[in-house]
Simulated scan of single mutants.
Amino acid sequence: MDTVLGIDLPTWWFLLIGALITGYGILDGFDLGAGAIHLFFRKEDSRRIALNAIGPVWDGNEVWLVIGAGSLFAAFPLVYGTILSVFYLPFILFLAAIIFRAISIEFRSKETMTWWRQLWDVSFCISSIVISLLLGLILGNLIQGIPINAKHEFVGRLRDFFNPYALLIAVTVLSLFMMHGAMYLIMKTEDRIFARLTIIANNTSKFFILCFIATSLTTLIYVPHMTAIFKQYPELFILPITAVLIVLNIRRSIEKRQYGRGFISSSITTALLLILFAMGLYPNLVLSSIDPKGHISIYEAASSDGSLRTMLLFAAVGMPLVATYTLFIFWTFRGKVKLEEHSY
């Protein structure tokens, strides 16, 4: 098997897709969080300011998801096909929620009627919550395994997706995004909405910490394969320890009103949690809950070495361009949000 810098090609693509998903989680995470807390703002100007805080960046943030899905299809087509067939209904709901979130942002201010704007405010909030919960639901099922047989065929039922562990992960993801979004909005706002957001950030951070503790304990007790790597390589315990410290630093930053540091900490928390998820799965991408022969590893699912090597060259050029574009947009629209004639 071909290698690059001593690492085999399937592992490179495992890392690359992980980086793309992490980028999406951090970037679209605060968009979704801002949407989930949108109805906590009661004033019209506050809601407009919140929308304008994410307005220049929300659609660009979704690019990371599109590239991640495309990379999964190109590098691991078996996994792409299996996941889509297994999570067919959740993905349909996910796409519907993405569509409604987009049109809610764009349509809201096209008319001045109160009922019109309230309709799209509710749509924006609900769609953001649904997307967050579905992402967590899919993640939770992938962590504990899904009922697929040795032929990688789904043999479960729809209600199997809504198991307690997956629902716990779903709520945890929602709480993380709400906290993440609140701190992003704090950095972009001032005056009355700023004061309101400090309260929201305080409450959502407490909610997330409770979910984080519950999820960590549940995973340790009921999903032992996610911690197997730490028994094999004890030195890797530094990662979960770091995650705990970073989570505590979020609370410390909020109490000290250092919201920029709190936002950085919540971004690092998102990245670390996804890294721990990837470490628990590797070298698999899909786990079967009923038959070990149903596991799909990166080596079984990978495209040919020639394809992986060629695509890796394109990724080496494309990913820095996407990252540079993202940084440019954030730099261009830095600073506090002001309502203007062309605001949402």
Rank of each mutant, 00 (worst) to 15 (best):
P10G: 10
L32I: 08
G35S: 03
E44H: 07
R48C: 03
N52G: 09
A53P: 02
A53H: 02
L65W: 15
G70N: 05
S71M: 04
V79P: 00
L84E: 13
F94S: 01
T114M: 13
W115Y: 13
W116D: 01
W116M: 02
R117Q: 14
L119M: 12
W120H: 02
C125N: 11
I126T: 09
S128C: 02
I131T: 10
I138V: 14
N141D: 14
L142K: 10
I143Q: 13
N149H: 10
V155C: 05
R157P: 00
L158Q: 10
F177R: 02
M179Q: 05
I186C: 06
M187E: 13
I193H: 07
N202A: 12
L210I: 15
L217G: 00
Y222G: 04
Y233P: 00
Y233V: 11
L236F: 11
L239N: 04
A243H: 08
V247C: 06
N249S: 15
I250F: 07
S253C: 07
R257N: 07
Q258F: 01
T269Q: 08
L274C: 01
I275S: 02
F277V: 01
I296Q: 05
Y299I: 07
A302T: 09
A302S: 15
S304Y: 01
S307Q: 14
F314Q: 10
W331D: 15
T332M: 03
